[in-house]
Structure formats: C-alpha cells, structure tokens
Nucleic acid binder design. Structure first.
Lengths: 133, 133
DNA sequence: TATTTAATAAGAATAATTCTAATGAGGTAA
DNA sequence: TTACCTCATTAGAATTATTCTTATTAAATA
C-alpha cells in the first residue's frame, strides 16, 4: 500500500478502502461489488470514485480489467499473467496459474504481431454441480 | 438458409436479411453493426428484431456471442470451436482455426468440471502496425 | 382463405459506465 | 504551520448497450 505514496498516487481514505478491498481479492469483483463493499465504511462513496480509481489503477497496471462476464466488467488485482476458469452457471471465476506457450500457425496470424494470450476455461463449479437438480 | 424452415424457424424477410448479413461474416459484428447493415434494405428494421433474432440463433447454436470486446457483445456465425486474435489498437478480431488441448493441473481445477476453453490472443494487426507513427 | 401463433416495431425501461461541474481535501513549498 | 495549487470526490445527469412491453402485423398451415 505504501508503494502508492512512493510513486505519486494521492492516498485518500476512499482509495485506501478500495485498495484494501482489492488487495488479495480472488473474487474478480465488478465495480458494483467494490462499491457495495467500500460503501459499508464510506456511506458517501460515489460510483464515480470507484470507476475513477479503477481507471487510475488500470493505467498503472495495478489492476486488470477482465472481459469475461458478458454483463459487466470484472477487475483483478492479480496482474501476473494468468488464466481463468469460469462457471457457466453462477459465473464464479477462478484463477489458473500455469502459463501456456501457444503457437499460432502462420496461416492464422494474418500478419498480426502477437503479444500475449489469455485462456478462458469454461466449466461447472462444485457448488453448481451439487445443486444441479 | 432452407434449413431454418425445416426446423421451424419462421422465415421473415427481416430474418433472412440478418441471416444473409451473418452468413460467412468474419467481422464478428456487434448488434449495431448488424442493425446498420440490414437497415439499408429494411429502413423500418428495429433493434429489438436484431436482438431477438440473435437470441433465437444463440439458443439454436447457430451463432456465438463473444465476450471479447469490453464495450459490447460481438457475434460470430462460425460455431465451430475456434479461437480469436484481437488487435489491441483497432479491436479487429480474426479467427484461429486450430484447437489446443490444454491441461489444467488438479491444483487449479478446484473441483470444477471443465467443459471447454477459448483462447484470446492479443496483438497488433498489420494495418495498425503501419499507421503506428 | 381463415386461423393460429409467433415476429415486428417503436419506444419505454434498465443497467453499466462515463461525463460534468461544484466542492473538498492531499501535498508541497514558503 | 499556512496558503495554495492540483487533483479527488460527490451527486447526478448523460450516454450506451441491451432488454422489456405492447399493439400490430405477417408467416405457416389446415
């Protein structure tokens, strides 16, 4: 957290609350999830502040914006390259830590310069498997 | 196209226009892209019709909804399992036809039953590479 | 050709996100 | 410290994508 002061991020209580909420968070929360969580301690918290802070953190590469959930953006404080496993029923997202070295045939490259990859695995989580009447 | 009549899809001129627009389309169009394209021939075309038709096709597995573009849904008439290459600058999406057999370590599975995967490759397309002042 | 049933159109409603403008509070330098 | 400057916060309006509603219309079929 202290690192932020060092590199010039103005440390307001609201930002600290958002950073606290994100720190080590493995839930891949949406802006609304974060808003709800920090609102408990900051009843005047504004959605704009959540979005502004996420935007700032994104620019600093301290958070990733995930385009996995078709309904809303999710955010991930884990900026190490990794992949995701999504429950097709409840939308729970879980991390996958290994890295895949995936070759793309020249035919498919179409002149693109490839700079990275991200794998989405689809599945059914244990909880949904059980309640699968 | 005839197949649709066979399996009970009511073939309206609007749907034919939307199916024509999708057929063989490699642009991964958004609902708006489709709306604009078919509006030329059907000035009274409604957005609701585009969304309704896409929903119907989705249910019939005749089109895929892509969650790749953070701003909007994209649709893909190619329902064969395949992967995508996205230009991080202009958002152009290109298909990758090979399939990857990706193992997930038990540690990362967390009890999920995995049913599929989708790889997003990030890169820079030839056009953007050139105009890269 | 009449009937049934589902599709269409227009616009209202909703949800996520971004924008705006006024106010407020960190950080910094005297 | 104190004053100032800059940037953050807030509330709400605006925007954008998508879904919903309802009356109307048209496709399929007997």
């Amino acid at each position: 957290m202290e690192k932020h002061r060092e590199i010039g991020l103005k440390l307001t209580p609201q930002r600290v609350a958002i950073l606290d909420c994100l720190d080590g968070n493995k839930e891949h929360p949406s802006a609304e999830d974060i808003y709800k969580a920090v609102s408990k301690r900051f009843p005047t918290m504004s959605f704009a502040t959540v979005y502004n802070t996420l935007e700032t953190l994104k620019k600093r590469s301290e958070v990733l914006e995930l385009t996995i959930d078709p309904d809303k953006k999710r955010f991930d404080p884990n900026t190490e390259p990794h992949h995701h496993l999504i429950c097709v029923k409840c939308k729970k997202i879980s991390d996958i830590h290994i890295s895949y070295d995936l070759a793309v045939p020249d035919y498919d490259k179409k002149g693109f310069e490839i700079i990275g990859n991200h794998v989405e695995f689809y599945g059914i989580c244990p909880k949904c498997k059980k309640s699968d009447g």
